[in-house]
Design a binder for these strands. Structure first.
Lengths: 192, 192
DNA sequence: ATCGTACTATGACAAGCGTCATGAAGGGAG
DNA sequence: CTCCCTTCATGACGCTTGTCATAGTACGAT
């Protein structure tokens, strides 16, 4: 295996998290899904489930941030609306190819853990912050004034999350298309 | 007690669901929170936890729909942006008064259950549909063309849900304000 | 070859879960 | 009063949860 058991467990945790939520995902499930030796979990993650979930979240945030940062090079005529469509397209592809089982790990964790004290909340904050900063930075590069980029990034990620929720409930990508269609004119109007 | 044990259990289920997610909420917790006799649960909800969660969802959807429908009468100069601000205002008040423990029950349920087969998914679909139809109907009344009202309602609810997620993570209502500020011009541009 | 560290294996713990079985009150109808 | 049906009470079942303890193997360094 190219990646060691440790990395596979983080990845598996992220995937199970996305489908069953953090409370619904057991350590034993993760270990089995990763094909990892059960005894290794406590060796690699002495911090227990919180540590595993936290690392899964940061891994996912890095993935999302990289995807955002890679947009500029791939588009012929880059624009804020194009960036948003690029972000949404990833989810359309995911849903079309793999079904609607998996949602966003950040949303899953917030839904389960934001209401109580948990060490994971700090990592959620970090993950969401990283994602938002990546979007905001890209927006600035696309001509959006710096003082508005943060709020626009919040809107973009927020609308995406909401549309993901709709899409999973309806088992249909139409909500994703609808949000892109409605938001695009607004997003491009931000350009200087 | 004005409301019987049955209604109190539905209400309590909704509240606990919002803070801990559906998987994280136990029947015993709900019964205790409702101050209801434990033995009554299986009498009023022979369908078990699924039935209880489903009813909590429909109750919440009715609450949200009523709130939306009541907008027209309360505003001096009603508009789509005003409706959205009205919806968001409810959450700002909730967070300011009661903290960030409780999120949206629909989001909580989707995050935990949308990935697997569950009888609750049908009720989630119904709840979200009812909420969206209420918003769309109100939009039509405010002058938004009928063929776009659905998509705009999806955008509004989706953006609200995303902003709720941000607000809970950051323990701050700023994301709610940001989304209203950014979306308002777009929303009012839909008016005929 | 001997040691030490890294990793794997396995079993147990207390606690929680959803559900069910059984029994006891309560109160209107016959 | 007796019957019956609604409502409440309590204990138990089998299962899963996160965590821990303990032992075993692998393997490079000295």
């Amino acid at each position: 295996m190219a990646h060691g058991p440790r990395e596979r467990m983080v990845y598996s945790a992220a995937q199970l998290l996305r489908t069953r939520g953090v409370t619904g995902t057991g350590i034993r499930d993760v270990v089995e899904h990763a094909g990892a030796p059960r005894g290794s979990f406590q060796h690699y993650f002495p911090g227990g489930k919180d540590q595993l979930v936290g690392e899964a979240l940061l891994w996912a945030a890095g993935f999302a941030a990289e995807r955002v940062a890679s947009y500029a090079g791939t588009a012929a005529d880059p624009s804020p609306a194009g960036l948003f469509a690029h972000m949404v397209e990833q989810w359309k592809a995911e849903f079309s190819a793999r079904g609607y089982e998996r949602g966003c790990p950040v949303m899953a964790t917030v839904a389960d853990l934001a209401g109580e004290e948990s060490a994971v909340n700090e990592q959620v904050r970090a993950a969401l912050g990283r994602w938002e900063r990546a979007v905001a930075a890209e927006l600035v590069r696309l001509g959006v004034p710096g003082e508005r980029a943060g709020a626009v990034a919040t809107l973009m990620i927020g609308a995406l999350e909401g549309a993901i929720m709709f899409a999973r409930v309806r088992r249909n990508v139409a909500p994703l298309d609808a949000v892109v269609a409605e938001l695009s004119p607004l997003l491009d109007s931000y350009r200087t």
